[in-house]
Design a protein around this nucleic acid. Structure first.
Length: 604
RNA sequence: GCGCUCGUAGCUCAACGGAUAGAGCACUUGACUACGGAUCAAGAGGUUGCAGGUUCGAGUCCUGCCGAGCGCGCCA
């Protein structure tokens, strides 16, 4: 097939794939047959899918027969006839086509085409994955912990899912802009700053604390004390309110203390991000406070546009689409009766900034599903204001709640939020026990490192591997299991393959495309060929669990191959082809896990 | 009251509108001194919450019910 045909086919962009998947190659072949058989149907979807009865099947005849008022079986027969010229076993990818059932076309691939695909992907540093998202500026809003508060289980999903999407979209060529919308503003800081001021003897800065206590941990405690004092002591409450005013009006000493609290908190967040292996950096932090200077302008712009109106002394935007109780339109609270601004206004200023200043084409908000209505209102307002146009897309990437084994929201016994570090510690401890149980001659230091990677990976994988919008049950025993659809299983699969490759010694296996293929080799090769298409699915649906499912299927396809196809015990040239499959599988698993933000250790 | 989301094997979860709804765990019966036991083979397990509709074809789309969770102005 000429290079241009590899690069362009029915309707897809040129850079969808660096190495055109066989499924798309077959789609191209079937499309040409459709055009030959029925010119009026040129451009129709060839409807090529994986099949359990052949390598691929095309359902095009079934889909198109109605338009022609013919029997699907008859159209299928015509397509078989028109595919005949493509059946050049020496050159094309198709070895055989047959009609089946009411009008399916079962398509068998030429073995050399499958081997050639393995060789092509192996030769590519990016495994043949293209850049279909190239040039698309995509803002991903995720993580968003609160300053002076511990990160807890509620931050897990947004951080893990957002980070994975950032990695996938980046690989696909998108211009990813990560935004950590820190909760760094609000009246609670008045209370906290006042309390710190009145208790200068208390140490809370990272440098003044004992080893494993973080500044946010200390601040979180101090906030509770401040809250108690606020409730118990009216005088302190008054001083705290005055402090809020000082903060909002930019009084230098108060502002400096606030900035220090923010900086100390960010240090603690960074430690958690490092441990989790999350991409977020200080440069990605654009907290709520950043929008303070433009809140008034944002509000007045919406008033001028006639969108925002007065209601009972407050400034609101009434939805034209959604109603609340008693059929009244649901409002966004733009300015409270006391003149203050809330998160509705901040989010409006934020979306304005991202569309107007950052010139984003796609906005992703990775937050809890419970905020669905809020984002619907924000997007509606942004559309009415003319900020969000048809050139851009805003999506609330919603996710479900983390539940305990009894199906209730995951909390401590006392009913509080579970600290993220405690959660990770527990997972690492559990992973350590499971890995030590295998005993592959690891030193204690290696064991520690592997337990950390396995435990963190297990938590992240468990979070990513089920449908995003559904709630999921946090079950440590299941997530660190070496069997089933777990991160540990995939990491282990990777180490096993790496072990084979180390023993083989040959890091540049040659693929001989003329060799016959075992059934399991073919199944594995076809699985490997689907990597890029899976990533495109993830970018389209924003559902990382599709990548997890793909990697799990890939690992199982490898297992089946490994059962029946000796690698090291085979002579060349069979050995070379099988080593190529091993190497491509290892690289695909490693890259895939990397896109989930999970390490792929060499041993475990 | 209105709205959003979810409902699939005993359990945890999959399934771009395609043929016989798939995995893992648990269960039953067998096999192998192992390229790292991530065991392998076979079996059992389902009216995809219920009822209609669209379609050549529906777990998937539409409508209505049932059930669960969540949300609906001055907290984010």
């Amino acid at each position: 097939m000429p290079a241009t045909a590899l690069l362009r086919h029915g309707g897809s962009a040129v850079n969808d794939h660096e190495v055109l998947p066989l499924l798309d190659q077959i789609g191209h072949v079937v499309s040409e047959a459709i055009t030959r058989a029925r010119p009026e149907l040129a451009g129709s979807d060839p409807v090529v899918r994986r099949s359990d009865r052949a390598d691929f099947q095309s359902n095009a005849a079934l889909a198109l027969a109605r338009r022609l008022r013919v029997q699907p079986a008859d159209l299928a027969a015509d397509l078989v006839a028109d595919l005949a010229p493509a059946l050049d076993p020496a050159r094309g990818p198709v070895a055989a086509v047959e009609r089946s059932g009411p009008g399916f076309l079962n398509i068998t691939l030429a073995e050399h085409a499958v081997w050639a695909q393995v060789a092509a992907r192996l030769a590519s540093p990016r495994l043949g994955v293209g850049t279909p998202e190239r040039g698309r500026r995509t803002v991903i809003d995720y993580s968003a912990p609160n300053i002076a508060k511990e990160m807890h289980v509620g931050h897990l999903r947004t951080t893990v899912i957002g980070d994975s999407l950032a990695r996938v979209l980046d690989l696909l060529g998108a211009e990813v802009v990560r935004q950590n919308h820190l909760g760094d503003w609000g009246t609670q800081f008045g209370m906290l700053i006042q309390y710190l001021d009145e208790h200068p003897e208390i140490s809370w800065r990272q440098a003044d604390l004992a080893g494993d206590v973080s500044a946010v941990s200390a601040l979180d405690q101090l906030y509770r004390s401040a809250r108690a004092a606020f409730d118990a002591d009216p005088a302190f409450a008054d001083r705290s309110r005055a402090r809020v005013v000082a903060l909002q009006s930019g009084e230098p000493a108060t502002l400096a203390r606030w900035a220090e609290i923010v900086a100390e908190s960010e240090k603690a967040f960074r430690a958690v991000y490092d441990r989790l292996g999350v991409l977020l950096t200080p440069e990605d932090s654009v907290g709520e406070s950043s929008y303070n200077p433009v809140l008034a302008a944002t509000a007045s712009e919406l008033v001028d546009a006639g969108i925002a109106v007065d209601s009972a002394g407050a400034l609101v935007i009434f939805s034209e689409e959604v109603t609340g109780p008693e059929g009244a339109p649901v409002p966004l609270m733009l300015r409270k009766r006391d003149g203050g601004y809330g998160y509705d206004t901040t989010d409006l200023a934020t979306i304005r900034h991202r569309l107007r200043d950052l010139k984003a084409h796609r906005l992703l908000y990775v937050t809890d599903a419970r905020q669905a209505l809020h984002f619907r209102l924000v997007f509606e307002a942004a559309r009415r204001a003319g900020w969000l146009t048809d050139d851009a897309e805003a999506t609330h990437v919603a996710y479900g709640t983390v539940l305990d084994r009894d199906g209730r929201p995951f909390r401590t016994r006392a009913g509080g939020a579970v600290r993220l570090t405690d959660l990770l510690d527990a997972a690492v401890a559990r992973a350590r026990a499971v890995v030590a149980d295998r005993d592959h001659g690891l030193s204690p230091a290696e064991l520690d490192q592997i337990a950390e990677r396995a435990g963190i990976g297990a938590v992240k994988y468990a979070d990513l591997s089920t449908s995003r919008v559904r709630d999921y049950v946090f079950d440590l025993d299941r997530m660190v299991s070496f069997t089933g659809n777990t991160g540990v299983y995939l990491q282990y699969a990777h180490t096993r393959i790496r072990s084979i490759l180390r023993r083989a010694g040959d890091s540049h296996p040659e693929v001989d495309p003329e060799l016959p293929m075992e059934r399991e080799e073919r199944a594995l090769a076809l699985a490997l060929d689907g990597f890029g298409a899976t990533l495109i699915e993830v970018s389209r649906t924003l559902e990382p669990h599709r990548l997890c499912g793909y990697l799990y299927d890939l690992a199982r396809a490898f297992t089946a191959f490994y059962e029946v196809c000796p690698v090291l015990g085979s002579a060349e040239p069979v050995r070379g082809n099988r080593l190529a499959l091993c190497q491509l599988t290892a690289r695909t698993l490693s890259r895939g896990l990397g896109l989930l933000g999970i390490a792929a250790p060499e041993r475990m």
